[in-house]
Design a protein around this nucleic acid. Sequence first.
DNA 1: CATGAATGAGTCTTCATTCAT
DNA 2: AATGAATGAAGACTCATTCAT
Lengths: 217, 217, 217, 217
Amino acid sequence: MSDNLPKKQPRTAPPEARREQLIDATITAISTYGLSGTTLAKVTAEAGLSLGLVNFHFKSKEALLTATLTHLADEHRALWFTRSSQPDVSAADKLKLIVDAQFHAKICNRRKLSVWFAFFGESRPRKAYRELTGPLDEERQIATSRLCADIIAEGGYSGIDSDTVSAMLESLFDGFWLNILMYPDRFTRQSAKAQVLSYLRLCFPQHFTRLDAETFA
Amino acid sequence: MSDNLPKKQPRTAPPEARREQLIDATITAISTYGLSGTTLAKVTAEAGLSLGLVNFHFKSKEALLTATLTHLADEHRALWFTRSSQPDVSAADKLKLIVDAQFHAKICNRRKLSVWFAFFGESRPRKAYRELTGPLDEERQIATSRLCADIIAEGGYSGIDSDTVSAMLESLFDGFWLNILMYPDRFTRQSAKAQVLSYLRLCFPQHFTRLDAETFA
Amino acid sequence: MSDNLPKKQPRTAPPEARREQLIDATITAISTYGLSGTTLAKVTAEAGLSLGLVNFHFKSKEALLTATLTHLADEHRALWFTRSSQPDVSAADKLKLIVDAQFHAKICNRRKLSVWFAFFGESRPRKAYRELTGPLDEERQIATSRLCADIIAEGGYSGIDSDTVSAMLESLFDGFWLNILMYPDRFTRQSAKAQVLSYLRLCFPQHFTRLDAETFA
Amino acid sequence: MSDNLPKKQPRTAPPEARREQLIDATITAISTYGLSGTTLAKVTAEAGLSLGLVNFHFKSKEALLTATLTHLADEHRALWFTRSSQPDVSAADKLKLIVDAQFHAKICNRRKLSVWFAFFGESRPRKAYRELTGPLDEERQIATSRLCADIIAEGGYSGIDSDTVSAMLESLFDGFWLNILMYPDRFTRQSAKAQVLSYLRLCFPQHFTRLDAETFA
DNA sequence: CATGAATGAGTCTTCATTCAT
DNA sequence: AATGAATGAAGACTCATTCAT
């Protein structure tokens, strides 16, 4: 289950390294066994560490799971936020960068998607997700809504509402994530991104051209 | 936990009634406690029945969960299929009926959405879902794709692909479901349906008018 | 598991027939699943009857098992007792008949040996056996001891004790039964009987000849 | 049920000690409650340990039972094998040592005999016994057969077959064990051993004298 | 007499957490 | 810091027994 040799660490490692090691093993365990099938024994075996360490570095199993979720959420947020905060980028390009981040290989892979949907699937973890990650989701939706508003103003688009587009985008993101997780043969990162961009082309024909999908592949 | 008085049934009920009763209690339990938090004790307490009865009417807990999933899938399929199989309905109206079914109060409520996402969230239940419900998902996607193709042919639309639209619809369905489950304050059945229809209006402006959303509310 | 067609009885059968039917199914169940693996469901399925019938015809499961044991013990006792009670038979021939009964196909088959040893193997059933069947075992040992005493007197054998021979016979009976059950490839009814008779030949050379084994085969 | 005070061990004991402790408690439990009446709760209570510990040190209940059987079989084998492997001992004396081992107080007591017959009595445990201990039984039978062949050659005995004697000995061993377990008032270790030796005296009068029984008491 | 649905106590097993070393 | 043995509560499943029909 774990190739322990290369993972063996010096007997005492800096706490932060141990925490990351355990979080990484937790992601692997959740994606393999599911949230309820993830036991501390499996996590520590995967990490090549001893069982007792989890309750030493984290207060409880729940704390480990919370830390794992936060870790993923931060990673995700960093990706789209830093990219779309660059000064000399147009609103449309920022929007494209957010879409791009959503389907980036680092984020949108089955290992990590499994974890997201593991949290969505059960009521208590869902509550935890809402508290921890909900604000980040809302922040992103607000950001895309503002970008859409800028584009609408720029392009003089009528009959289209920035909040509607951003709600659509959020749902497309989640829906494609789910389908990529469920039916990887029919849904891929690339096709998902292309189809989201095709939606933006429908909305904002002057700002999104047929070539965009390839540009950011 | 269970208000037992009104639920008390005659001591011996027809097996099918007991099965339905247990499936209904299972849906409630999953939506309340999650899939892994759903214990047979909670299910039977919810149903006002004794613990041992589940393994009498169903072979195992897993069989109960499978039956629950199948029950939901059949209910969902029946709703959109019978509606969209009527003879004298246009392709566009059939598509609207499918969208309508997807966000119908009978299907799209937090109690039942919880169950869907409970199955999506863990690897083994996800596999079960894929085997049991995957074919129905694909059937629906094929149906919407055909309807889109008909609409495209009718309207002479260019630059739009029926498979892309059906993939988008599938993802919008799932994505809005998730957001309705996660953020019921910001996402409602009505707004979701309206936004999906706004997407169809973008795609097929001659076939979907601004009034459609209200028509099928 | 049960070929139910030929076993189906008229809906109401004489109680004694039902009891025998259930006892027979119990023997089959014990030999197949062991004593603890024998459930009333398996017994009634084997008998082609409904679950509730056992507690109708027998007070409890334990009563069924007790009746089964008694049935076997009576059958066994009848076989050796009636044979060795004939008036014009010599003591040696009576002894041979007892040995013969012990390894008779009707008694000494794996199906029934399983039941005997099932009762020997657990403390409570062992206690039940002791109470129900112990007296019959003792009766047989006394009978063989008397026959040995007669033979010793007749033959003028010295250095041999009738109680020792009867104790040896009892143990040989049980030991061969066990080995026939455990290792049917190495131990058969026929070889066991021949070897017990070879022991009697060692004890009483004038009364048991080399041909005895075949005579009673 | 358990006198816990004297059994309390240091909180962390070497694994092998815990395993032995649990095996010992298992023997006690089987002899008291039978195989199917032996629950992990009773075993651990008997051992003065907590319920969960069995599945920590053994994979399952079945593994514990298997280990218990192996433990007894090894103990038994060691006793007769080391004794009868001494270099300067005659074949007849080796045979006596095997008989002696069979009825040694360490082996042939009701506590341990209960366990043997518990395994004989049910089909699945019987199968386990056959696989684990069958080879040891056969090894012993082969050893006794060889010793008998040596004695026959030495003594020039005729009309007697070494395989027959060894089969008789096996069955006597088992049969006396059963009777000692069932009827301890009428069958004792000492009388059983004396009677088995009396059989050997019948077979090999030059090698086994009347005094042998007492010599090895 | 007969059926089989219903009950609930009892068992094995899992696993988060604790703690002696 | 780290280890892993130990604990015990909780859950799925079994099954003798009861009882309405």
